[in-house]
Design a protein around this nucleic acid. Sequence first.
DNA 1: GGCGCTAGTCAAGGTCGCTTGACACCACAA
DNA 2: TTGTGGTGTCAAGCGACCTTGACTAGCGCC
Lengths: 63, 63
Amino acid sequence: MKNRLKVLRAERDWSQADLAARLDVSRQSVNAIETGKYDPSLPLAFRIARLFGLTIEEVFSEV
Amino acid sequence: MKNRLKVLRAERDWSQADLAARLDVSRQSVNAIETGKYDPSLPLAFRIARLFGLTIEEVFSEV
DNA sequence: GGCGCTAGTCAAGGTCGCTTGACACCACAA
DNA sequence: TTGTGGTGTCAAGCGACCTTGACTAGCGCC
């Protein structure tokens, strides 16, 4: 799973902590997802996509 | 998280075991997802959507 | 009656997702 | 120099995801 979180975040000038707060998860979770340590759960993936006004497929892609 | 697995499966006349084999997961996992015991992981959600030729949003929806 | 297929469920176990709390490193401002 | 924000990482813990193996129950068919 690859994702465009870092770019989407940069486009809005948000820190990892900013994004974490908007998603209601910990900063460490955002960091882990961005750095590829693990994939988000499906509900969190939905929240991420909706936050950026995109579909899940537009944010995440299979390797 | 709601999903249309049962309907999509019925449209194709697949058993839970059939679907499980196509997704490379156990029959119990398919059953658990259908009966709402838990949500699939994001990678599995991708596999499910692709198998049916749909987007993740077309298969799954937030409550 | 018995047989085969389907769906639902349970237990036990391993890995993943997410948490809190802490620490280190870097860049930059005061 | 001190400090502040941003990022990356670690540990420990808990619940979610997924597994194998087994069991129950309903259905149609022989």
